[in-house]
Nucleic acid binder design. Structure first.
Lengths: 146, 146
DNA sequence: TATTGTTATACTCTATAACTATA
DNA sequence: TATAGTTATAGAGTATAACAATA
């Protein structure tokens, strides 16, 4: 058994290190959790969306999405309102303060990402994305099989 | 902001999926936590080691290593004894039951790893390891800089 | 009856630092 | 005074499922 070269271990260590290197930007300066960051990022992309859409888009449990959104609402960063077509559903969108925050955070976070990926050569960078996608698809297949 | 293509997000989602696809083997059948699995894997590799060596080798905090080892000892899978040269230190090694368990688990876990990586072409597989190592080194550099 | 989203609860994990015993 | 390892404790995060409102 060679733990250092065991793929799931390496991936876990890498994801943790990358997360710590990136999360600093939104954690320390603005007190956002990772879940809140994901929700804001999704909203910056989608404009507005239902809670259910966000929980899928952000790979969060619906409960985590619900709590994250409640927290973001309390901070005045997003607004929730009833959906027109289904009154059980809530539609979420960024408040001006949320838009302003994201306008500030996104460039910083993308700069971090660029710095991380600058360690790779062009070929590596081009291959990495598709490779990760293939492994993810395979992992999800395995998870379903049990 | 494109969350789906944000590298730290993709990595976190992938690591989680891979972990779930793999952890099943040692979690469900034997009630091991991820920390315990790492410690056992390191011991299977190193034969015997100090607590401190294990906590570095497994990327665990010394407290997590200490607790994991205490739990493994309670389960009769490892034994701890005082080190000869430094009586503050503990030397840990696998008990026969631990060796037997690992002889059973390791092939299953490696088979899972192979299945995961079978989604990749030869070129991709050859490039992935070094690419992940470069990004990890870069992330650790960034973490130190702050 | 099923679904959307929220809330409750208990449980686990984590982080910090205090502590014991050696060195 | 510093180090190896353990223990304490409080806070954060997680999982399960119950729940209210609506479909």
């Amino acid at each position: 058994m060679d733990l250092q070269n065991f793929f799931p271990y390496r991936l876990a260590v890498l994801a943790e290190a990358v997360s710590q290197a990136t999360a600093r930007v939104y954690t320390e300066q603005h007190g956002l959790t990772r879940d809140e960051w994901r929700l804001l990022a999704a909203l910056a992309e989608l404009g507005s969306a239902r809670t259910g859409t966000l929980h899928e888009h952000c790979t969060l449990e619906k409960m985590q999405a619900s709590r994250g959104l409640a927290s973001l609402e309390a901070k005045g960063l997003v607004a929730r309102s009833q959906a027109d077509d289904d009154r059980r559903a809530h539609v979420v969108q960024l408040e001006p303060a949320g838009r302003k925050l994201m306008a500030e955070l996104v460039p910083k976070v993308l700069a971090r990402q660029a710095l991380l990926l600058s360690a790779l050569g062009d070929e590596e960078r081009a291959m990495l994305g598709p490779a990760l996608a293939k492994v993810l698809a395979q992992a999800q297949r395995l998870r379903q099989l049990g």
